[in-house]
Structure formats: structure tokens, C-alpha cells
């Protein structure tokens, strides 16, 4: 474990807590894409298949349970909690996210480190996580301005992968033959997808005005 990875995990944890806080306290999921949340449930479900078979550390297992639990409960809230479900704008959140999964599963079947069920599922979850934010970013473009909590959620979610990139660089230089191109490239793509959001988020923070995304 290194400081970059810990910072990444804490930033990731903060992002899901901010979203849960928003949904649980003000009972609203306005501006949040259910499609992205559903994709994250699939990302964690396929990423942590080995949660009961391979034990790395208490920390590792605890964080996996937190990410699985939080992503499932966010989807549950948005789908089945009456008050929250009412604030979900279904008309705008229309990204065909199942079409995102198909290329990811095909790519995972083609490009992976080992052709085993676990490895292909794990690789699929990496590719899917890289694009999982797209429905959310599309929704933001449509609804234009976003509330602070949703903005913070996306900012933290994008930031965590940025910390992971620093972690990969650190591990590359400190651990012999630590080379994982698949992880590095999908992580880089994921972070780049947030780039324009980061730009407008920073602008709104600098000018201290509400976050407005261009049409």
C-alpha cells in the first residue's frame, strides 16, 4: 500500500459517501444518472468476485464490502424508494448503457492477462469502469447546471482514478516487474473522460459561480 493508492481509495470512498449522503438526507437523486449507478454495481460485482476466495487484507475486504454495499443501496434508493425515485428524471437519463457493456465484454474476451473466468470478468470490470461515467456526463450536458453534491460526487469519482495513476507510476518504479498495461490504459482513459468536467468544475470554483456545462 502506498500513499497514492490510499488517497485514491479514500477519495473513492468519499465520492460514494457524498452521493449516499445526498440521496439519504435530502431524499433527492436529481441530476444523478441511475444508468451510471447500475453500471457501477456491475463493475463492483464483477471486480470483487474473488472476495470470498482470495484474502488480501482486512482493509481490502472491508473496502470491497463498502463499495458493493454502497453501490447496491444507491441503486435500490433510486429504483424503489418512493420519495427518491420521484426525483429521478427518467426522460433525460436515456443513455443505452447496456450497449456500453457489450464492447467491454468483447474487449475483455480479446484482451486480458490470462484467459480464466475470474481474469476475464475482472478485465471486463476494468473496461466497464472506464466508461461507466458516460451516462452521468451525458445527463449533466442535458440538465446543464448541477447541484453542488452531484458536482462533488463526480469530481471525487474522477479524482480517485487520478490518484491510482500516481499509484501505478510509484509501483512501477518501486516493484520489479510490476507491469499492467490493461489496468494502466483503462485507468488513463477513465481519467481523461473526466477531463472536460474537471475543466468546467475548476472554472466554476475559480469564478465562484454555479457549475454550468456548455450546451
Amino acid at each position: 500500500m502506498n500513499i497514492f493508492r490510499l488517497a485514491g481509495d479514500m477519495t473513492h470512498l468519499a465520492s460514494v459517501l457524498v452521493l449516499l449522503l445526498k440521496i439519504h438526507t435530502i431524499k433527492s437523486c436529481a441530476g444523478v444518472s441511475l444508468k451510471t449507478q447500475e453500471l457501477y454495481v456491475i463493475v463492483f460485482a464483477t471486480r470483487y468476485l474473488d472476495i470470498f476466495t482470495s484474502f488480501v487484507s482486512i482493509y481490502n475486504s472491508l473496502m470491497k464490502l463498502i463499495f458493493l454495499g454502497s453501490s447496491f443501496s444507491i441503486v435500490w434508493y433510486m429504483r424503489y424508494h418512493k420519495a427518491v425515485h420521484r426525483t429521478y428524471d427518467r426522460e433525460q437519463d436515456t443513455f443505452r448503457h447496456w450497449f456500453l457493456m457489450l464492447p467491454c465484454i468483447l474487449l475483455a474476451l480479446l484482451i486480458h492477462e490470462k484467459f480464466t473466468f475470474f481474469e476475464v470478468m475482472w478485465t471486463f470490470s476494468l473496461y466497464l469502469e472506464a466508461v461507466a461515467i458516460l451516462p452521468q456526463l451525458v445527463l449533466l450536458q442535458r440538465t446543464r447546471n448541477i447541484d453542488n453534491l452531484t458536482g462533488q460526487y463526480i469530481f471525487l469519482l474522477g479524482g480517485y482514478r487520478g490518484f491510482y495513476i500516481l499509484n501505478w507510476i510509484y509501483r512501477y518504479f518501486t516493484e520489479p516487474h510490476y507491469v499492467h498495461w490493461i489496468t494502466w490504459i483503462s485507468g488513463l482513459v477513465q481519467t481523461l473522460l473526466y477531463a472536460d468536467f474537471f475543466y468546467y468544475y475548476f472554472l466554476s470554483w475559480k469564478n465562484n459561480k454555479k457549475l454550468q456545462l456548455p450546451a
Binding site: S54, S57, N60, R171, Y178
Partner: peptide, 10 residues
């Protein structure tokens, strides 16, 4: 963590 695995990451 041994270098050649990254399954220790979340």
C-alpha cells in the same frame, strides 16, 4: 504485495 499481481488493488 508481490510485484506481478495487481489484484491487491480495489
Amino acid at each position: 504485495e508481490d510485484g506481478d499481481s495487481n489484484k491487491d488493488e480495489l
